[in-house]
Design a protein around this nucleic acid. Structure first.
Lengths: 223, 223
DNA sequence: GAAACAGGTAACCGTAAGGTAACAGTATAG
DNA sequence: CTATACTGTTACCTTACGGTTACCTGTTTC
């Protein structure tokens, strides 16, 4: 069993890592948001333990960001015991919340419980008209046919779903899909055309609605 | 959603029941061990909330007794915050432990989380299409033939099953199977080919579905 | 009304990601 | 010690992804 621990208090972290090791739990450790992102990029964990207060950001934001990318169960650590903090944490996908100070054995037990349940999060679903999207399994269907998208097209669809039903600006899309690259309008245009043609067959209502100078929105076309 | 609440403090119980009702959670209520046993006999719940101190016994004993008879997830309530109490509760099958006083919204959230988890009791059997996998005995069959896999292939299959039906990224697989080693794409490619060929015979539907640039998923090929 | 502009479509094609087979070195079993 | 399986490596093949370009249409601006 391997978990990710993100915690800036090095003393606490060291103790935790030692204790968890005794319990047979391997720990990847990061002390900042940046470090956490780098370390975890190519690893799957059984659970993630996140401190809320971090030197270069906060665990809640990180969790919110991961909510749509990772499927690991998250346990928050925080010195704050206020209800609002907890509710916010849970709304960001937390499955448990432990208030400092806490006993290490309790942390270990809660981690183990989370790890056992790691499959339990139901996949996020999105549907619009006859379009059905499983955001975790990346399965897309429309009517009775299965739609397969390329990586780029999937990213775009995901982005549009995230902002549904609001339009997404062209610049935002380009920024998201070709980060730190020469932006080329033509690449953008091709991508839109390709996604549109994959999502729509003849006599089906269009789903990608262009708002001139404003962006593109996912919605059923009313005419 | 319906839960069982066993709690002798009638004021707390009333408040809880009211609040949970607002959250769409129906409550069966008992104030004693005896009553709890009687009420719950012919009912299955999404979760059970147990106070530890009860007039005619204690919640821990009740939980221990139920541990092997009922499969509902249990959340303990207690005024006691001592580590030993918690550890004992968890060892009796508790999945969560809340110290009084607590906020009702937190109780509601934790109940909901438990209810979601309850579906995923460690199911050590996996089946998909004609494929049958016993994850404990490590026996794999497809149709009437037994499939024998190498260690690496088994690891990969296990990983894919764990994430089913979601895809697993190539980098994640490589990290899982060759930890701290020079990653070589060719090793990965060979492994995939070998597992695929072992799982699939001619005229059987494919089970390993590649999502270009996104990963590989275990699923029946629909084409 | 022409020019400039935003957007849409189709076709072309180099490339890299993915798939397979074969070989060899090493481990493992009997 | 021999036979068999496992796994790393290489070489070669196939494909579709995505960038590019060219040519549309419709809208805005002066």
């Amino acid at each position: 069993m391997i978990i990710l621990l993100v915690e800036d208090d090095t003393v606490l972290a060291t103790h935790s890592i030692d204790f968890l090791a005794q319990e047979g739990i391997e720990v990847d450790y990061a002390s900042t948001v940046k470090q956490a992102q780098a370390i975890s990029e190519h690893q799957n964990y059984d659970a993630i333990v996140l401190d809320i207060n971090l030197p270069d950001g906060d665990g809640l934001t990180l969790a919110k960001q991961w909510q749509h990318q990772r499927q690991e169960p998250i346990l928050f650590l925080s010195a704050r015991d206020a209800l609002d903090d907890k509710l916010q944490a849970f709304s960001y996908g937390a499955l448990d919340y432990l208030t400092k100070p806490f006993a290490l054995p309790e942390l270990a037990i809660r981690i183990k419980l989370l790890a056992n349940k790691s499959n339990s999060k139901p996949n996020r679903q999105f549907s619009l008209d006859s379009l059905q999207v499983d955001l975790d399994a990346r399965i897309i269907t429309r009517g009775d046919r299965v739609i397969v998208l390329s990586a780029q097209q999937w990213l775009l669809l995901e982005l549009l779903i995230k902002h549904y039903p609001n339009p997404v600006r062209k610049a935002a899309i380009i920024n998201e899909i070709w980060p730190q690259q020469d932006s080329n309008i033509n690449m953008y245009k091709s991508l839109i055309t390709r996604l549109r043609s994959n999502l729509t067959q003849e006599d089906e209502p269009a789903l990608l609605h262009t708002l001139r100078k404003q962006g593109i929105a996912l919605r059923v076309q009313h005419d």
